[in-house]
């Protein structure tokens, strides 16, 4: 296969920019998009299951919006909601599907802030074996 493009999509403006760029690439490369929404409630304490359900629902709403957006751009797409932290989610989906690349958006935050607070693109480019395309939102 190796023809799918994995996109990190959480409904934020920068993830929309990532999706748009990925949709353009997908139509050019005749690839299929996989919209990944990764979430994982912090393990410590409380009603984790309801938190998880709330995130799942949020993911469903957000990714169905993303699907519309992708279709509007003429790209074929599907959704993967993954109960993992976003970097893990993107990499595991990319690995499992032997994807062509991962596309994520960045807020254009100060690099130091991203490094300290652990931004997704920052971690992803260090850890991913799949090529990563970072799009500024």
């Amino acid at each position: 296969m190796a023809n799918e493009i994995v996109v990190g999509y959480d409904g934020s403006d920068c993830s929309k920019a990532a999706l748009d760029a990925a949709a353009k690439l997908a139509t050019e490369l005749k690839s299929k998009l996989v919209l990944v929404f990764g979430y994982e409630p912090y393990r410590v304490g409380g009603e984790i299951q309801d938190h998880r359900k709330a995130l799942e629902e949020r993911g469903e709403v957000v990714t169905s919006e993303g699907m519309e957006r992708a279709k509007g751009k003429g790209a074929e797409a599907e959704v993967a909601l993954v109960d993992r932290e976003s970097v893990d989610a993107l990499m595991s989906v990319a690995d499992a599907r032997d994807a062509r690349m991962i596309v994520v958006g960045t807020y254009g935050e100060h690099p130091l802030k991203g490094a300290i607070l652990g931004s997704t693109p920052y971690k992803l480019v260090q850890l991913s074996e799949t090529p990563v395309l970072v799009v500024r939102g």
Binding site: R43, A80, L81, V82, D83, S92
Partner: peptide
């Protein structure tokens, strides 16, 4: 999920989930 019938919904309930060393 109406717009993505082919999606498996929640993927990868796999081995790492909720497990802590």
């Amino acid at each position: 999920m109406e717009s993505s019938p082919q999606a498996g919904g929640v993927e990868d309930k796999g081995l790492k989930k909720n497990a802590v060393s």
